[in-house]
Design a protein around this nucleic acid. Sequence first.
DNA 1: CTGAAAGCGCTAACAA
DNA 2: TTGTTAGCGCTTTCAG
Lengths: 338, 338
Amino acid sequence: MNPTIKDVAKYANVSIATVSRIVNGLPGYSEDTKKKVQEAIEALGYQPNAIARGLINKRTQTIGVLFPEVSGMLSSEVLEGVENAAHDGGFSVIVCNTTSSGKRTVKYLRLLQEKRVDGIIFASEDVKEEYYKIFQEMKVPVLLVSTASSNYDLPFVRVNDFEGAFQATEHLIKKGHKQIGMIGGSKNDPIAGVPRMKGFKEALQKYSLAFSVAHITTNEGYRFQNGKESLPVLLKQLPNMTALFAASDEMAIGAMSAAHQLGIKVPEELSIIGYDNLKIAEMCYPALTTVSQPLKDMGQTAGEILVKLIKGEEKEAKSRYMPFTIVERQSVCDLRDK
Amino acid sequence: MNPTIKDVAKYANVSIATVSRIVNGLPGYSEDTKKKVQEAIEALGYQPNAIARGLINKRTQTIGVLFPEVSGMLSSEVLEGVENAAHDGGFSVIVCNTTSSGKRTVKYLRLLQEKRVDGIIFASEDVKEEYYKIFQEMKVPVLLVSTASSNYDLPFVRVNDFEGAFQATEHLIKKGHKQIGMIGGSKNDPIAGVPRMKGFKEALQKYSLAFSVAHITTNEGYRFQNGKESLPVLLKQLPNMTALFAASDEMAIGAMSAAHQLGIKVPEELSIIGYDNLKIAEMCYPALTTVSQPLKDMGQTAGEILVKLIKGEEKEAKSRYMPFTIVERQSVCDLRDK
DNA sequence: CTGAAAGCGCTAACAA
DNA sequence: TTGTTAGCGCTTTCAG
């Protein structure tokens, strides 16, 4: 067994209260006893038991983070930021992979409740009523990252997707493109689906360019495969398309891959702009021009806000829109050059 | 405050001991009281407090996982497997990002010790003496994933890197390549560095092909940038190289990117084989032929073994070499066709 | 079948 | 400056 505070007290010939004070840096002892106790701690290799502390303090110094997919490149960057902020604030993070399953999410939420985590970060998924109820039961701060809740008032940290999509499309337009298509997400996705399509549409309209349903393909997910399969159908719908906006980098790269196979040159014959700025965006060829979400920063910010909320340094959580930028690489060509 | 076992007992007019028995599925009560208690639990929304349980059971149902970089694509796949296995076994996982810093690693280990985690998974990094000492102090099972310890006897789950590299090289040779180069890792890396270079070298020798220091470039890391910068120097050292083996997918793709920029066609003029089979391997163009490590499986297996060890279902942990395969895609051409 | 009570390791009054 | 003591919420003997 690990030595306990009692062992230390006995070894140093003091009471456990004194040891506790010294360990916690509270006032109330002489330099002399302090030294004695520290020697005892050293000699015994004493480590305070965080579990016992948690029981009494009602604080576990732990937060839970829920992702739909921990191995996704998007999640993992966000996670890194969260973990970093948590660590700096003296918290540990428990990761939960919901796999987008409602049952699993609820199960995890219950678990986090039993483990008495001090706060929760919920990422990239819509908040169902079920979840919201548990959040309320738990009475711990909850923060949404790269998602928002349509139905409930929960603080979030994310990018303005409408704006991001709008500017991405505008970027294409300003490069002289007039026939622009979009590989979109799901119509039922109120977070990454609808707003990005809306941003695309409104950008076209602002510049008086043609827009119809034929300009967009929708997809179940935002993966490579979705993009790859979407390109041919978009091409059929919009034969003289010179540029496209994909609602995710993975889809953009899928489209790029399909283009290669079809013998379509990127960007000479087809310009592509993505969304996310994952690490792969600069690894593919040609390197992908994309809307950069500050993923790690978003995680970090969410973590920091959550920690402040837990510590009571901040009372009301205010939502944050994070700035995005358009990162120009090689996948978009300028039509005006010709 | 959350309701406690006391509240339930009072509500149901029984003792806390009885509630405890029912909650834990132990025998010793009538159907009648069981019903009463369950109603009380329902009515109060009682959730057992895992912290209090942990204090008494000396089990937190939590494991710690340490990665040098949680946002790496390799780490995140392993993490997914670990999380999955842990969850199935009734454990939560705390992630720790060591950033390859010794100090930070030690700090985390201490933290996990204080939090009384039941086991540890240590990934992708060499085990320093400092760490090993803490492992021993903690007296919890430790499992290494995709790494091994040269100095200490710790169970691991990984791929045989020498064999993987050997077969990757052999694959190139069997496709008729004779001038083969390698973009290697670090000479000081006993895990992914040395064995892969050795595998490369011995494969060449087995087939009586030329080998010299000029056939390998070494790198600090295994990143895209390393590969990108390595290609030109390797090309200078080995001007008539027709194929190369990169010690990681990221480096392979970096080399591919550099090749594109130099106007070298892959695979027609230069074949490339990677190592890892990350998700990006099938996303790049041409899709990367590579040595596939079953990353998620490795994490899953490690998680499962650790859980068994914790539960005492297994006494001695045996190390496991996981099978790898060569995934043929489009980045290697067959010279014999000509 | 059920309850009283001890105690897990610690913190925080309250005394001394 | 120090020690005593009462819990935190739970499990687990040990009686009844």
